[in-house]
Design a protein around this nucleic acid. Sequence first.
DNA 1: GTGAAAGCGCTAACAA
DNA 2: TTGTTAGCGCTTTCAC
Lengths: 337, 337
Amino acid sequence: MATRPTMKDVAAEAGVGVMTVSRVVNGDPGVAPATAARVEEAVRKLGYHRDDVARQLRRTNQLSQTIGLMVDHVADPFMAAIASAAEDVARQHGSVVLIGSSRDDLRREREVVAAFTARRVDGMVLTPVVGSHRFLRSTIEQGTKVVCVDRAAPGLDVDAVVVDNFDAVRDAVQRLVANGHRRIGYLGDRQEIWTVGERHRGYLAALEAAGIDADPALVRHGLRSGPEAATAVTELLSAPEPPTALLAGNVVVAIGALAVLPPDIAFIGFDDFALAARMTPPVTVIAQDPVAIGTTAAHLLFARIHGDTSPPRTVVMPTTLIPRGSGEIPGPYAQGS
Amino acid sequence: MATRPTMKDVAAEAGVGVMTVSRVVNGDPGVAPATAARVEEAVRKLGYHRDDVARQLRRTNQLSQTIGLMVDHVADPFMAAIASAAEDVARQHGSVVLIGSSRDDLRREREVVAAFTARRVDGMVLTPVVGSHRFLRSTIEQGTKVVCVDRAAPGLDVDAVVVDNFDAVRDAVQRLVANGHRRIGYLGDRQEIWTVGERHRGYLAALEAAGIDADPALVRHGLRSGPEAATAVTELLSAPEPPTALLAGNVVVAIGALAVLPPDIAFIGFDDFALAARMTPPVTVIAQDPVAIGTTAAHLLFARIHGDTSPPRTVVMPTTLIPRGSGEIPGPYAQGS
DNA sequence: GTGAAAGCGCTAACAA
DNA sequence: TTGTTAGCGCTTTCAC
C-alpha cells in the first residue's frame, strides 16, 4: 500500500519548495503559471490530497469548516429531515457535518459532544436530552457555538429553534372538544423531554378551559415505540369508560396507535407523515416543517460562527393543523344534525 | 471570550511538564496518583479539552477515529436507517461519523469524498452515484477503506452490501402474472442508478419468462419524486389499454403512486414503509432490512480498517416479499373461482 | 516569484 | 515517576 504523499513529496517531484506547492494547492496568487503547471502535474502523478488536519493545526484562529449535529435518533424521519436541511446549509458554507445520536441518554450526549469538541468543530446543533448541560459551559466559553433545535435546554443560554408545542396541542384538543368529545385520551413519550412536557401541558390547558376534569386514566406517558403505543391504545379502549378521541404526542406514537385504532375513534397526531391522507379515515395532524426548522437552526449557527454576538434568541416556528377527517369525527356531545 | 487552553497551560497550572499532562489526559499508566490529581484539578479549572486534531497529526500511523458516510439523501427513510445503523457500529468502535449527501450528483459526490479525504477519515461508506469512480483510486491506494452500500460501483474493486434486486422484482412480477395479470406497469427512478437498472431487468425477465411481450407504454423511468410518480400513474391508467397491475421501484415512487391509485389495481412496492398494512387495500411490498444492511456495511468497513486484507467481496442481503393484499388482487386472466 | 525557518498542540523516543 | 527533544504536515513570516 502506497504511503500518503505530503507537500514535501510533491515539492521534490516538481523541483520546487513546499511553499510553492502550498500556494498552488490553495489557489493562492503569485505563482508563475509554468511553475503552477509543474506542481499540478506532480499532484496528479502522486495522487496528493491536502491534509486538512495539519492545515487546521497551523491556521490556529481559523475555522475547521466542520459542525456537529447531535439528534435524538437519526433514523427518526423528523430528525433525518432536520439533519438533511442542516447538511445543505453547511454545504453552502463549505462545511461538513459530524453526526451523532443521543438516543435520549445524557451520558451518550456528553460523549458525542466531547467527540465533537475534541475534533474542534466550529459549532454544533443539538437536540438536548433532559438533564444538566453545564458540561457545555467551558466549550461554549472557548468559542464553540451551540444552537438547540426542537427542544430548549433549560439553563443553557444559547439560540434555540422550537415550535409552539403548547399552543398547537391546546388548539387541537379544543377542536376535539368542539366536535363533541369530553373523554379525550393522551398518548405521549417520556414527559421529561421538553417538547413532550409542553404538549402535555397544552392538553391539560385545553381540558381546563373547557371545564373538563382531567382523568389520569386517559393519559399514557413514556411510550417509546410503536408497539408500546399500540398496547396503550388497546388498554385505554378496553377500559370501562373508554375515550372517544385520542391525541398522539409524536409521530412514532401516532403510527403505533393507528395500527390498532378503530375507525370510529377521533384522532389527531403530532407531526405529519407520508400517506396520512390515504388512511381510513384520513389522519388529521399537527404538522411541523422539519426542513424549515433545520435550515433556520443551521443559519443561526453559521451566523454565530461568522461573528454574530447579539443576545441569544429563541425562534418559534409555526405549526399547522391539517384537518383530514380523523380529527373531525364527532363525539357523543356533538351539536346539531 | 476565553482562549482555548493547551496542555502547556495545564502543565503550568499544575506545575508539571506537558508529558505528564499528556499521560494523565490519555489515562496512560505511570503517573503518581497525587500528580495525576493535581493535573486533573488543573484540567477542570481551565476547562481543558484535548485537541484531537493536533493529536492525530503526531500519531501519524494511527487512526483518526472518524469515518465518512455518503448517501443519496439523508432525509430518505431508507438511507436514514442505514446511517443510524452505521453510526451505532462506529460508536462501538469509538469513532464518529461525517455525513454527506450526493443527491445523485457525481460532482457533489466528489466534493463530499474530497472533504472526507482531506479530513483523513479512516474509511467511508458510500452509496455511489452513476458515473466513474476512478477519482477514488488514489485515495484507496493510500489506505482509506471504502465500502459501497445499496449500490455497487462498477469498476471499483471494493466491498459492497446490496440486495438481490433482480430476483426480488422478478419474483414479485411473476407473482402478479400468476394472479392473472398480463398488463403490468413499471414505475422507476433514473435507470442509470444501479439498483433501478437491476430492478427493471428483473421486471423484464419475469415478463419474458411468462411469454408476455414487454410494452414500453407501461414503463415509466426517471421518476424523482412522489408527485412525478402520481402523475405517471394517472397517465398510465388513462391510456387506451391501461395496466391492471403496477410495480413501484422504490418507496418514494410507491408512496407517490399510492396517493392516486384506485383500489382495484394490483400493486407491489419496493421497500416497506410504516402503515403499509393499514392502507386500503393493505400494500404488498418487497422489504429490505436497512438496519441489517447498514450494520453489515459498517462492520465490513471496520474490519478493513483494522487490517482485513482479504479480497473484496459483495454481500447480498435477502429481501422479503410481504403479501398484504394489494399485490394479490386478481387480474383479468386469474384462474379458478 | 520563490524558498527557508519557525511553530501550531500534541506524542514518540529517549534521558534523567 | 517525570521531563526534554524532535517532529507530524502544514502555514505564517520574512528574506531573497
